[in-house]
Amino acid sequence: MSEPKLSRRAFLQQTGVAARSSLIALSLPMIMSASQQARAAQAMDAPMKALQPDEAAEFAAIAARIIPTDETPGATEAGAIYFIDNVLSTSHANVLPELREGLAALQASAQSTYGSASFHTLEPAQQDALLTEIERGSFFNTMRFLTIAGTFSLPEYGGNRDHIGWKMIGFEDRHMWMPPYGFYDADYAAKGE
C-alpha cells in the first residue's frame, strides 16, 4: 500500500496552522494538488460495471450530499461512486434492485416537488430537502452506508482516492507508530505522571 502523499499533520504544519486545531477552513484547491484534481476528473469518466451512466450520476449526486465537498474534499473527490459501483457488481450485488427502486421513488418526488425527475441537476438545497424527507428510510441508509464505506475503505476498492476520506478525519494508515501518540501521553512523558 502506498503512503499518502502528504499526511494531514504535515499538511497542517506546512500551511502554518496549529496541528491540534481540527476545525480549520481550507479551500479545496489548497488541499488537492493539480495532479490529484486531474486524476479525479479523469477517473470520473471511467466506465461503470454495475450502474448505468444516468444511475451513476444520480447516486454520485446523493453521495455528494452525504459527504459534501465544502472547505475540504468530499465523497466526489474520494471517488465513492467507483467504490459503490464496484461492490454493487460484486459483494453487494443483492442490494442493487432495492437501490434502483429507491432511486425511482426519489426521482418521482423530485418531479412532483421541483418539476424535474433528475436528482443530480437540482440545486444542493433542493437535493438536501428531498434527502431529509427520506433520511430514516432504508434507501437513504444504504446509500449512506455505501458512501461512507466508499470514502473510508482501502483505495483498492475504488474509493478513498488519495486517502481523501482518511485525511478528512485525521487517520493515517501506517504500519508502525511510536509514542507519543497524542497530546496527553506526550504531556505525561514530559511530566513523569
Binding site: S22, L23, R65, I67, D70, R144, I169, F171
Partner: peptide, 17 residues
C-alpha cells in the same frame, strides 16, 4: 448530524479528539 457538512465537520473533530 448523520450526513452533510455538519456531519463531516463532526467527524473531522471527533476521530482524533
Amino acid at each position: 448530524a448523520r450526513w452533510g457538512s455538519a456531519y463531516k465537520k463532526g467527524l473531522e473533530q471527533e476521530f482524533t479528539h
